[in-house]
Amino acid sequence: MQTNDLSVPLVAENSSEPSIVQIKELSKIYRQGEINVTALNRISLSIARREFLTLMGPSGSGKSTLLHIIAGIDRPTSGHCIVQGVEVTQLSESELADWRNQNVGFVFQTFNLLPVLTAFENVELPLLLTRLTSKQRKKQVLTALELVGLADRTSHLPRQLSGGQEQRVAIARALVTDPQLIVADEPTGNLDSTSAHEVLDILRSLCNDAGKTVIMVTHDPKAAAFGSRNVHLEKGELAP
């Protein structure tokens, strides 16, 4: 769909390399007043292409922090995070914004659709940052919405959709730029069990049929069962 044209140092770029995410000795320490809180403590993890990895753990275990660092919306205190051969920890603020747009699709627990835009316009948003023509954008948006089964809801505003439909629009928005990596932060946390099942089915088929890598944070063991691998975090460390 589009190429990564960022002029950033490529580390360990190798087409035969099976892992899409390589994390080495990654730490994140927050400062809360006088106290240092360790959210992640020297984590090393490798995630293979086409993997559906679920991150589980109690609240405060650092799973969301890890997800945010992989997605390039947070920075670690130390360590390396290489995603698709790019050391994301070294990118500037603007480079990160472009990188996120082209390489990561993000699905939030609270959907985070813009309330004043229709389903079509919401899905089109990330494409506005590309050089695609309006016609090309339209084609991709419709394909993405079709993929999540909402081709007939293009002109609906978020408030006219159910929770499950909103989350499917959000998934369409995450995959419209055709990123290799989809990250989802508790995507079923606000959904009833039927809608949650639909959403998880879509994420699994993105992985199995479309060859995407999906990383999902969840509290729910039933949701985690959809994943191909499950990683547990506790107190900022990988649980054995």
Binding site: A71, I73, E93, S94, A97, D98, R100, N101, Q102, F106, F108, T110, N112, L114, P115, L125, P126, L129, R173
Partner: peptide, 14 residues
């Protein structure tokens, strides 16, 4: 605020 955060995640610059 959350809309702004979402836009930033999607790749819109400051």
């Amino acid at each position: 605020t959350r809309e702004v955060g979402t836009l930033r995640v999607l790749g819109f610059r400051r």
